[in-house]
Amino acid sequence: MKPYLSWQKQVKLMSDRGLVIEDEAECIRFLTTVNYYRFSGYARYFQIAPHEDNNDFYPGTSFNKIREIYYADEELRTNLLKPLSCVELMLRSHVAHIIGKEYGPYHSYLEEDFYVDTNNRQMIRDSCLHDIERSKERHIRHYRNDAGDNHNFDELPVWSAVEAWSFGTLSKVIEYGGQGSLADSVAASICIAKGGFASRIKALVYLRNRCAHYGRLWHHSVIDAGPTPNNVRKKAKRIAGQFGNRSVVDVIASLDDICVRGKVMDTSGKLLNPELPKLVKQYKNNSDFWCGLVNPKSPKDHKAHQS
C-alpha cells in the first residue's frame, strides 16, 4: 500500500530519486493540473528499472525534459481529434445513406438478421438500441411517448439513428451490418480499399477514444491496430521513415489515407491536410518524443532512453 503524498512530497520524492527539478514551485504548479500518476507514465521511461522497483532516474534527467514530452503528447492528441471527428461524421453520413438506399431507412438496422450470423449479432443490435434509448436529442425523443417509457423506434429513420450511435457502435454496424457486406459498400462509397476496411475503422475508434480520454500516445502500442494497406504504409514510410505496425504513427498513416481518398472536409468546408507530414516537420527523427511514437516500447526496455 502506497502512502498519500502531498504535491510538495511528490516533488521531494522525484528529487530524491535523482530527477533534476529546475523550479520546485513550477513543478508543484504542474502537478496541481496534471495528476502525478499520469506524469509517472512518462517518467518511468527515464528511470533505471521501475519494473524491478529501481525508480532512480538516469543521471541528468530533468523534469523539464519529461514535461516537454508530456506536452508534445497532449498537443498530438488535440490535433488528432479534429480529423478523427471529421472522419466519424463522414462515416455516419455514408452508413445512413447506404442502409437507407439498400436495406430500407426504417427498422432494418434494428433487426438481428441485418447483422452477420455470429454470436454477437444480438449484442450489436442491442448496442444500437441502447445508444438510441439513452439519447436526449429531440429528434430521438420524438419517438417516445410523453412518459418516456415506451418507444416506437421502428419508425426512427436510420439517418436520425446514426446520430445517436457512439463511434464504437457505428464501427460494429459497419463491420457486421448488411450480413457482412456493409463494410464493402461503405468503403466503395468513399473510394477506400475494401480489404481490412472495417478493422481500419476499429483502429480509428480506438485512437479517437484514447485521444478523447487523455490516454498516452507516446510509447503506446495500439491494441486494435488495423491492417493498414501496404501501399499506404510504404508511402507513409517514405515521409516518416520506419515505424512499427502497432505504433500510433501507423494508425495516423491510415487516417491520412482515409481523409485524402474520402475527400474529408473540416467544418469550414476545406479539405483536411494530412497529419503525418506535420509531425515529421515538427519533430526530429532522433528526438525522444519521435522515437517513442514510431517504436513504442515497454518501460522494461529502459535502456532506450538512458541519458
Rank of each mutant, 00 (worst) to 15 (best):
M1C: 04
Q8H: 13
K9R: 09
K9A: 12
M14L: 15
S15R: 13
G18R: 07
L19R: 04
V20C: 11
D23V: 09
E26F: 02
C27V: 01
Y36K: 04
Y36R: 05
R44L: 10
R44Q: 15
I48W: 05
A49M: 08
H51W: 10
D53G: 03
G60D: 10
T61R: 06
T61V: 14
F63A: 05
E68N: 06
A72C: 14
E74K: 15
E75R: 11
R77K: 15
N79D: 15
L81D: 03
C86Y: 10
L89K: 10
R92G: 12
A96E: 07
I98L: 07
E102K: 10
G104D: 08
L110M: 14
V116R: 11
D117H: 04
D126G: 04
L129K: 07
D131G: 09
E133V: 11
S135N: 10
S135G: 14
E137G: 06
H139S: 12
I140T: 06
G148C: 06
D149E: 12
F153Y: 15
F153R: 03
E155K: 11
L156H: 05
W159F: 15
S160V: 14
S160K: 14
E163L: 06
A164G: 08
W165F: 12
S171D: 10
I174E: 05
I174D: 02
E175T: 09
G177E: 07
G177F: 07
S181V: 11
A183Q: 11
D184A: 15
S189N: 06
S189P: 04
I190F: 08
I192F: 02
A193C: 12
K194E: 13
G195Y: 02
S199P: 02
S199V: 02
R200C: 06
V205K: 01
Y206M: 00
R208Y: 00
N209S: 03
C211E: 10
Y214G: 00
G215Y: 02
R216N: 13
S221C: 12
V222R: 01
D224N: 13
G226T: 01
N230S: 13
V232P: 02
A236C: 02
R238V: 05
I239Q: 10
G241A: 01
F243D: 06
S247I: 00
V248D: 05
I252G: 08
C259W: 00
R261L: 07
R261K: 11
N273P: 00
N273W: 00
P274F: 04
K278S: 14
K278I: 14
Q282W: 08
N286L: 02
N286H: 09
D288P: 05
F289W: 12
C291Y: 04
L293F: 05
A304Y: 11
